[in-house]
């Protein structure tokens, strides 16, 4: 069963091209449909938060955008160009790994469990992609990495290995590592879920600063409703692999239209 790709544009053009566009994206694991014909746009510089019940496909959205998973149908565009596909002779074909690597360089991701490289120092973690992927000299890479470690408040931990850092510190190094690559889109998947409550604010403060200071497009999955409400331009409520409802935080949290959104928000508020 191959999809007719001719209904998707080869690239997005015009005044209002979104930084990220999911069109009709479906993802299955065997018989389980995890994302069901998802449509989702994120504008340049926008901070979009995804909330929703466990198993609704929030992580999967980010993983597909990071190209850690392939999609079964539909197209994802990044910065106007297809990510999952590429243009050949006026047609969209599945992307080659070379094409994927080129588009992927625009995206960075932070994970729930940090995933720092344990055999490298904080500085080494930040420098790795700069030296090995972008081909910067060690001096340039160190300079850029130190700027970012400084930004996340960890300049003095530069020579520590991850095993000697607290969870909050590790996650801040992970954010610095991803930002050092200068992505246009940053993905955050429950970056505070594995942290002790008293260090969560170390990490959320860093993300707050990104919203203020950078022309960075961000897509964040979180269970922290207060943080989502405060920081987001838009909140998407996911249910069964699709966007059930979305809007400004004020509208979605104060005035949800859909019954499922209300139920979810009530359940979350009860739990807190």
């Amino acid at each position: 069963m191959t999809e007719d790709m001719s209904r998707y544009p080869l690239r997005l053009e015009g005044d209002d091209v979104p930084m990220v566009r999911f069109r009709n994206v479906t993802k299955r694991y065997g018989p389980l449909v995890v994302l069901n014909q998802l449509d989702l746009d994120v504008s340049t510089g926008e901070m979009v938060t995804i909330i929703g019940p466990s198993g609704s496909g929030k992580t999967t959205v980010l993983r597909m955008l990071m190209t850690l998973e392939t999609i079964d149908s539909g197209v994802i565009y990044v910065d106007g160009e297809p990510l999952t596909h590429m243009e050949r002779n006026g047609q969209l074909l599945p992307a080659s790994s070379k094409h994927i690597r080129r588009i992927r360089s625009k995206i960075g991701m932070c994970f729930q469990h940090f995933n720092l490289f344990p055999h490298m120092t904080a500085l080494g973690n930040c420098m790795e992609g700069l030296v090995q992927v972008l081909g910067l000299s060690r001096r340039e890479a160190e300079e850029r990495s130190m700027e970012l470690l400084d930004m996340v408040g960890l300049a003095e931990k530069r020579d520590e290995h991850p095993s000697r850092l607290s969870g909050g510190q590790q996650q801040r190094v992970a954010i610095a590592r991803a930002l050092a690559m200068r992505p246009k889109v940053m993905l955050f998947d429950e970056v505070t879920s594995a942290l002790d409550p008293e260090v969560i604010s170390e990490v959320t403060n860093v993300i707050r600063r990104l919203v203020g200071a950078h022309d960075l497009t961000m897509l964040m999955v979180t269970h922290q409703m207060g943080f989502a409400k405060e920081i987001s331009d838009r909140v998407c409520f996911f249910f069964n692999g699709a966007v059930e409802e979305q809007g400004t935080p004020a509208k979605l949290f104060e005035n949800p239209e859909r019954e499922r959104t209300r139920q979810f928000l009530n359940a979350v508020l009860d739990a807190n």
Partner: peptide, 21 residues
């Protein structure tokens, strides 16, 4: 752990460099 491969991919490391580094 799988997370190490994923972090390497998110940094856009090539397969060869992911193994080596």
């Amino acid at each position: 752990p799988a997370g190490q491969w994923e972090a390497a991919k998110a940094l856009n490391l090539s397969v060869v460099r992911t193994y080596r580094r």
